[in-house]
Design a protein around this nucleic acid. Structure first.
Length: 281
DNA sequence: AGTTCAACCTTCACGC
DNA sequence: TGCGTGAA
DNA sequence: GTTGAAC
């Protein structure tokens, strides 16, 4: 498993190419890619033109670029299949290209590509440095503002099941269904474990698991499950992905050899090792 | 109040 | 070969 | 992955 800070690779990748650059033109190729908070594609494009990108930030599945002028940012929500790509302007349009930003310097485009249209980009005001629509989203474990003691306190005050808590974006962000299952396996925790029974060291272990899984995924460009989902380099993360439990029903646990089980939970799949992750009584 | 569930979309793998 | 289904 | 409606 790669070591920290993998996130910085992604962030630097964005910052390196984008920061300080003036937007020449914004093109919306799919109306739903900018749904919400804006009248339409034309105004979206008009408001971006001539603005300069100041920096690049990330929170969970969100990336945002603060812009010159007003306290505003271009916010991208990647969803499950969305990607924010930095590519040579000569590159032919991607099959699922939704929004394309060209720059005055003639350098690489910033392209929002999203097969399933679950993600979107928008222009939004910043409040305390964070886009207004995601003000309720808690920091992810890679952010400097992520406070482990605070997280521990709030987690144990929840009185809920641990996986439910991990998927709660107001408590911790960046952890989806797959990452949750993987992190729980690493920490040898059953998804139904009551949060108030977790010891401080166990929570530390779990967070380490979350960072390991999330970091590996970020290295591959965020969401990359199917071979058709590609990373920032346009390569599939499919083959070098190393999932221990997710999607491995009946396959042996790499720690103890016990067949991995699949259970329905919260209207989705949950995978775990019956031996390593004992169900709480 | 807490929880489940369908909807939002496109594509692909699978079985018949 | 295609059509419906389930899953991402 | 997120939202909002329905139990």
């Amino acid at each position: 498993m790669p070591e920290l800070p993998e996130v910085e690779v992604v962030r630097r990748g964005l910052a390196q190419w984008v920061v300080g650059r003036e937007i020449a033109d914004a093109e919306v190729l799919h109306p739903r890619a900018i749904r919400r908070h804006l009248p339409g594609a034309d105004e979206f494009a008009a408001r971006l033109k001539g603005r300069t990108v100041l920096s690049a930030e990330r929170r969970g599945k969100y990336l945002w670029l603060p812009l010159s002028g007003a306290e505003e940012a271009l916010l991208a929500h990647l969803g499950m299949s969305g990607q924010l790509l930095v590519v040579d302007p000569q590159t032919p349009p991607e099959r699922h290209l939704r929004v394309r930003l060209r720059f005055e310097d003639g350098g690489p485009d910033l392209r929002f590509v999203d097969q399933r249209t679950f993600g979107h980009v928008m222009l939004t005001p910043l409040v305390h440095g964070v886009p207004e629509p995601i003000a309720h989203i808690a920091p992810d474990p890679f952010e400097e503002s992520f406070d482990e003691a605070e997280f521990t306190r709030r987690l144990r005050a929840r009185h809920t099941e641990i996986k439910r808590a991990l998927l709660d974006q107001s408590l911790i962000s960046g952890v989806g269904n797959i990452y949750a299952d993987e992190a729980l396996w690493i920490a040898r925790l059953h998804w139904a474990r009551p949060t108030e029974t977790l010891t401080r060291p166990k929570i530390v272990e779990l967070l380490a698991g979350v960072r390991t899984v999330m970091g590996a995924a970020l290295l591959q460009g965020g969401t990359s499950f199917d071979a058709l989902y590609v990373n920032v380099n346009g390569e599939s993360g499919y083959f070098d992905r190393s999932l221990e439990v997710y999607g491995r029903r009946d396959l042996p646990c790499s720690r103890c050899g016990t067949p991995i089980r699949r259970e329905a939970f919260m209207n989705r799949s949950s995978y775990s090792c019956p031996k390593c992750q004992r169900k709480p009584r």
